[in-house]
């Protein structure tokens, strides 16, 4: 018996999969569950394109075993918008030029969401530090960081604190 039956919450819905012991969460999401928003960029935790949240923590799904996810809450980029309607963060990223080819974008959206869930007023340095594990080859990062700053400024102004990404 080398496969594991694993049940976890995926974007709010319980899913059960039968996976080999070392299968990565990224393969499970993309190939078994057909959620292809999380991207395979490097397969060794260097680029962050596969970043997802497991119990609110950002992890590289390409090096995390699905079998460790039993009973946990997994959120992917698909779960961070409301049925495809972009969140405030996502909208700010579109507006500010955070997106070029977009292949790294899901990973950035997830990593920044994790940041904003734990820190309501991150500095520029905090933001840059929070995305150290995410490579963007197109934008040179400035417009990504500005999008996050814009969301933070808007949410502080609106007094909505950490609920910006809901």
């Amino acid at each position: 018996m080398t496969s594991n039956s694993v049940t976890f919450s995926l974007n709010g819905v319980d899913r059960t999969v039968d996976v080999p012991g070392a299968e990565t969460l990224l393969d499970t999401l993309r190939d078994r569950l057909n959620l292809r928003g999380s991207k395979e960029g490097c397969l060794e935790g260097e680029c962050g394109a596969c970043t997802v949240l497991v119990d609110d923590r950002p992890i590289d799904a390409c090096i995390y075993p699905t079998a460790a996810c039993g009973g946990r809450r997994v959120r992917t980029v698909e779960g961070l918008s409301d049925g495809g309607v972009p969140s405030l963060l996502q909208r700010a990223m579109v507006r500010s030029g955070s997106i070029q080819c977009g292949f790294c974008t899901p990973g950035f959206v997830v990593a920044v969401t994790a940041l904003l869930e734990r820190e309501s007023n991150p500095s520029r340095a905090d933001i840059a530090d929070a995305v150290n594990g995410n490579i963007c080859r197109c934008t040179g990062y400035a417009q990504i960081i500005e999008a996050v700053q814009a969301v933070v400024a808007d949410s502080l102004a609106a007094g909505t604190g950490q609920e910006v990404e809901a």
Binding site: G37, E78, Q90, V94, I99
Partner: peptide, 13 residues
């Protein structure tokens, strides 16, 4: 807004 932006930022592209 770039017209492919929403698809890219929501993981649908």
């Amino acid at each position: 807004d770039r017209t492919d932006g929403v698809a890219k930022v929501t993981g649908k592209a």
